[in-house]
């Protein structure tokens, strides 16, 4: 359900829509609390675009619902667990990840291609977006703040091993690190190595071993999430 424009943008997240005003007294604030400058600027843009019929408020609600509630690293973990369990799926994933994840009902909204890169004893893969913050949204949801920070974006390419060490990941000397720079068109998913001792686990149990960071390459599967 679409909330009216007039709702107080300060009062909550996007949880429970409420049309009724919150009853409480603020003798010092006879008028409604003024939202922050950026909140008002966003509201202004939204007002203009909706008035002109350029965006549909229902489409915005659907997008929020998707990214706040439905999409997240659990989807990427499902893909990785399937790849670990099903060699044919793994081959399809590495050959054409966009098509392979579609088999599981996962697809990008912006026509972006997903490319899966598999960690091996020889090569550890790690993903960054040096331009802005391109990220495999359909598989991992909204990126964490560190992924969007200048520090990570600059250093992941320049000194990946040092960055990995800060994430608590130390790799054997012989294992190369390969850094993939995402773009608006191509988003990378790291398929981490299957942890030792995980033989015999089913896909659901396996997916519990796959952390978000392990699919960005700043963590290893089986480590604490």
């Amino acid at each position: 359900m679409r909330r009216p424009f007039g709702r107080c943008i300060l009062d909550s997240g996007f949880g429970a829509p409420h049309d009724a005003p919150m009853p409480h007294d603020h003798p010092d604030h006879p008028h409604s609390l003024l939202p922050s400058d950026p909140a008002l600027r966003v509201k202004a843009l939204e007002t203009i675009l909706v008035r002109k019929g350029l965006v549909d408020p229902a489409a915005m609600d659907e997008i929020l619902d998707t990214y706040e509630r439905k999409v997240g690293p659990h989807l990427g973990a499902k893909v990785v667990a399937r790849a670990w369990s099903d060699p044919a799926f793994r081959d399809r994933l590495l050959a054409d990840a966009t098509a392979a994840i579609a088999e599981l009902g996962i697809s990008g909204r912006q026509g972006e291609h997903v490319v899966a890169v598999e960690n091996t004893p020889d090569t550890h893969n790690m993903v960054v977006c040096t331009l802005c913050s391109c990220y495999p949204w359909p598989l991992l949801g909204i990126p964490p703040a560190w992924y969007k920070s200048d520090a990570y974006r600059a250093r992941a390419v320049r000194e990946p091993r040092k960055v990995l060490a800060e994430f608590g990941v130390s790799l054997p000397d012989g294992q190369k690190v390969r850094v993939w720079d995402s773009t608006a068109e191509v988003r990378y998913l790291v398929v981490p190595m299957r942890p030792e001792g995980s033989e015999g686990l089913d896909e659901a149990a396996l997916s519990d071993l796959v952390s978000r960071d392990s699919m960005i390459g700043t963590g290893l599967a089986g480590a604490s999430k």
Binding site: I9, S36, A39, L54, V55, A59, I63, R109, G111, G141
Partner: peptide, 30 residues
């Protein structure tokens, strides 16, 4: 309700507005 993935509601609104504009064909994501 799970915790929001955005720090402030306007960030979520901004995100949705931008994605909606792109999906409506007003600009490409590239």
């Amino acid at each position: 309700t799970p915790p929001s993935r955005f720090d402030e509601p306007w960030q979520a609104q901004l995100f949705a507005l931008t994605v909606a504009m792109s999906e409506a064909g007003h600009f490409t994501w590239a």
